Simulated assay, not measured.
Amino acid sequence: MTQYPGLLLTVIAFLLVIGPLIFLHELGHYLVGRWFGVRADVFSIGFGREIFGITDRRGTRWKFGWLPLGGYVRFAGDMNPASQPSAEWLALPPDERNQTFQSKSVWQRAAIVAAGPVANFLVALVILGGFAVVHGEPRTPAVVDQVVAQSAADRAGLRSGDRILSANGRTVDTFGDLARYVVSRPDEQVALDVARGGATLNVPLEIGVRIERDRFGNEYRLGVLGVRSAQPVIVPVGLIEAPVVAFRQTGAILQMMVDGLGQIITGRRPVSEMGGPLRIAQISGEQMAGGLTAFVGFIAIISINLGFINLLPVPMLDGGHLFFYALEAIRRRPVEARVQEWAYRSGLLVLLSLMLLVTFNDLSSFGLWRGLAGLIG
């Protein structure tokens, strides 16, 4: 029977996921900016008209906007999209000018911009490290114990005792590594390097497909190999090792995100799989209904996702700013303001188009278009 977490729980869960992550992302920008002596005029959670706010003794306006889908820190002197010196900036008194974003060196500006995504990754590291200490880390060797009859592995000739070393050249150490690689590649061709009887074999196969439906009615098309491990190996993790484990797991999640983006760009996965805020809200409610551990784990994944997306070299995102700062460092002078302005306008158009696309996908996944078609028909 399909279950639904309810609208109120979904809204609360979404705000509990997005709100703190946006705050911590912007707090990263703010704190590093303060460290370098940059004054912040506005710290906003959400966009649009202010619904509540206070001004601190430093003159920073801390406020909430009515649209909770992002946030920003506006630093002193940030008068144009390219954050470059202007006539208005040059007219400021020297002491005020020294507190502006433009007055800082390229590496300081880059550090301020990078601090937001870094804060998101730190959130995930803390959560995943805590999970590792509490639950341990799965380290089951990638050794085949059983091969499922008529599965992809069976058709390719894999046997009990085979140790899988790599998949399409990517190293496989544990069953978790293998599962992460396979699950997002249904129907894809893959070549496995397999250790058998002292020899290394190259085994080509086509990954199988398994359709799963969760208790909320969501359907997933997953890749499946058809091999089983022996008894799972869970290794205790201490406080000293926890950051290393968390860093490794964060890297694995990032790799899956990069793979997924590459699959969409190359057409191996449909664009319809891209989700937006509505989909995040839906999953937030479902994960909260699944318990605290599932919900906190989901926060870690979304935090990594926010950090990853913001580092993409798209103008208007942090990665776009970092790209221009890299060019500035190489050229020893900033990219012309007019070029940056056009780039940021183009980036805004791309982001708005992407937002429309993912919103369309979200509504489609909720069955809105099928419902409208039924009403019209």
Rank of each mutant, 00 (worst) to 15 (best):
I22M: 02
M1T: 14
D177H: 03
A195K: 12
R228Y: 13
D193C: 04
G290N: 06
S229D: 11
I283W: 04
D214K: 12
G198M: 02
G297M: 08
Q189H: 14
L357G: 06
R215W: 05
W35G: 07
F131N: 03
I301Y: 10
K104R: 13
G290T: 03
I376T: 12
G136F: 10
T293K: 13
F52S: 13
A124R: 07
Y72R: 00
G319K: 04
R213V: 15
R109N: 05
I330N: 10
E212D: 14
I283G: 07
R332L: 09
Q189C: 02
G77L: 00
V134H: 11
A373L: 13
W107F: 14
V224G: 04
K63A: 08
I51G: 01
V143C: 06
P81N: 04
R370M: 11
D154L: 06
G46N: 07
G217N: 02
Q99G: 09
Y30P: 03
H25V: 05
S184D: 12
F101N: 05
P243T: 12
A294I: 09
I207C: 00
H29T: 03
N98K: 14
T174C: 06
G291C: 05
I264N: 03
D173C: 07
G223N: 04
G238N: 12
R338A: 15
I18E: 03
R215C: 01
G161E: 11
A142D: 02
R185A: 02
L327M: 14
L21P: 02
V227W: 07
M316R: 07
G53P: 06
P232V: 12
R170M: 12
D187M: 13
I240R: 12
L278Q: 12
G374D: 14
A13C: 09
I127M: 09
A13N: 07
L122M: 13
S86M: 09
Q340Y: 03
L205F: 10
R74A: 05
V143P: 02
Q3I: 15
G208N: 10
E212P: 00
W89T: 00
W369I: 08
Q249Y: 08
Y325T: 04
G6Q: 03
V258S: 05
I264K: 03
A13P: 04
W35H: 14
E88P: 00
L348A: 15
I265L: 11
Q150T: 14
Q255A: 15
G371K: 13
R163D: 05
A326G: 15
F75I: 07
I211F: 11
D95V: 12
T266L: 08
R49K: 15
T359V: 12
V296D: 00
D193T: 11
I265F: 10
Q102A: 15
L205H: 06
A300D: 01
R34E: 08
I265W: 09
E341R: 13
V143M: 06
V113G: 04
D145R: 10
I207K: 00
V123D: 11
S151C: 05
Q340P: 02
Q146C: 03
T2I: 15
R34Q: 09
P334K: 00
G48M: 05
Q249E: 15
E273S: 13
P232I: 13
A110N: 05
L92D: 01
Y72K: 00
E26P: 06
G320E: 10
H25M: 01
M288D: 11
L363P: 02
I127A: 09
A110P: 01
P5C: 03
G28F: 08
R221L: 09
L192P: 01
